[in-house]
Write a protein that binds this DNA or RNA. Structure first.
Lengths: 194, 194
DNA sequence: GAACAAACGGAACATCGTCCCGCTTCCATC
DNA sequence: GATGGAAGCGGGACGATGTTCCGTTTGTTC
C-alpha cells in the first residue's frame, strides 16, 4: 500500500479514466447540490461531459456514486463521535451533539435522507455504507450514556440512527419542519425512565 | 346535501362507471396490501380488469386513489382524537395514545408513510388530505396537553405529525426497527422542560 | 508508429406514469 | 322495444428514467 488509495492495485488505471472519475465526482457533487441526490443520471453525465455508460463503469450503482461523493463527510462525522464523548460534560450530551452533527449533514443534502431509507435494493450499498460506518460510533455513544445510567438502554444504535435519518426526510426547504428539534426531542425522550 | 356524498351532483354517474369505481377501490386496496401503495398503476388496472385510463378517469391522480382507499380509516383516526381526550387520564396520555393509533395505521400500509412525505407534486392531494383532516385533531390534543402544562408548547401539530409519519417509513417488515417505540420516545421527549 | 486492450459515447432496452383515440355500452327518449 | 348520442372504456402511444450493449476512440507499451 504505497499510495493508500486501494487495497491492491493490480493494474494502474489509465490516465483518462482516472481523470474522468474525478470529473464525475465533482459534477455529481454539483448536480446533487443543485437538483438533489436523485437527479437523473443523464444530467450528471451531461454536467461531466461524459456518456452515461461512463458513470456506470466507474460506479456500478447509483449508490456507489453517492457514497463516493459524501464519503469524506461521513468519515468526519464518524470521527467526531469519540471526540465528543471525550469533551462533552455527559455521555448523553455527547450523544445529543453527535446526533446534531449527523442531522446537519443529512438535512443539507437534498433528498439524501429519503434515498437512504429507501428499500430499493439498488441503494443497498449506500445503506450499508452509512450503517457500517456510523452505527458502531453511535453504539459507543449510546453505550456510554446507558452505562452511566443517563438514558434507557432498550434502544439500539441502528434504531436511533434510522429514526434520526427518517426525521430528516423533507427537512430542507420546509420552514415549518425542523428536523433538528425533533431529533433533539427524541434524544431527550431517551433520558426519561423506561 | 341530501346524501352527504358530494358537494353537488350535477349529473348522476352512469351505473357501470359507479360499479367500476367500486371494483377499482377494492382491487387497489388488495394490491396495496400485496405490493405496497406504490404498486404500478398497470397492476391495479389488471387486478380490477380494466384499462389504465379508467383509473385516471375516476381518480385524476394516483394520490386521489390512495386517499379514496384509506379515507374511512383516516376518518376513524380523526374521530378518535376527541374521544381519547375525554377518556385518558391526562392530555399527554391522550396524545400518546392517539399517536399510537396514527402509527398503527401508517405502519401497516406498505410504503404509505414514505409516499406521504414525498415531495413529488403528484402526491400533493394525498399530503393535503392527511394534513387537513388530522392536523386539527392533533392540534387539539397538543393544545390540551400544553395548556395543562404537561408538555412544552413550542412544537406544532404539523411538525409532530410529519415527524411521526417520517418515523414510520420502512417500519414494516423490519424487525430491527420499531416505529411505535420511537414515536413514543418523541412524545415522551415532549414532556421534558424546554 | 503499430498493436492491443481499456475506456468511451450514445443508442438501445426495460419500466413506469400519464394521455389520447377510436370503439363500446348505457340509457333517455320516442 | 328500437335508437342516437354521449359517457365510458381499453390499449397503445409518449415521455422520462435507470441500465446495458456495441462499435469506435484513445492511452499505453514495445
Amino acid at each position: 500500500m504505497t499510495d493508500g488509495e486501494q487495497h491492491a492495485a493490480p493494474r494502474p488505471k489509465r490516465a483518462d479514466a482516472r481523470r474522468n472519475a474525478e470529473t464525475l465526482l465533482d459534477a455529481a457533487a454539483a448536480v446533487f447540490v443543485a437538483s438533489g441526490v436523485d437527479a437523473p443520471v443523464r444530467d450528471i453525465a451531461a454536467a461531466a461531459g461524459v456518456g452515461t455508460a461512463t458513470i456506470y463503469r466507474h460506479f456500478p450503482t447509483r449508490a456507489d456514486l453517492i457514497v463516493a461523493v459524501y464519503r469524506h463527510q461521513v468519515e468526519a462525522c464518524a470521527e467526531a463521535g469519540p471526540a465528543l464523548l471525550a469533551e462533552a460534560p455527559t455521555a448523553h450530551e455527547a450523544l445529543r451533539r453527535w446526533m446534531d452533527l449527523f442531522v446537519d449533514f443529512l438535512a443539507t443534502k437534498h433528498g439524501l435522507a429519503a434515498v437512504l431509507q429507501s428499500d430499493d435494493p439498488g441503494f443497498a450499498p449506500l445503506h450499508a455504507y452509512f450503517l457500517d460506518r456510523l452505527v458502531p460510533v453511535c453504539t459507543e455513544l449510546l453505550g456510554a450514556a446507558a452505562g452511566a445510567g443517563e438514558i434507557r438502554s432498550d434502544i439500539t444504535a441502528y434504531e436511533l440512527m434510522r429514526g434520526a435519518g427518517n426525521l430528516c426526510i423533507g427537512a430542507e426547504d420546509n420552514p415549518r419542519y425542523d428536523a433538528r428539534r425533533l431529533v433533539g426531542l427524541l434524544v431527550t425522550g431517551l433520558g426519561a425512565p423506561n
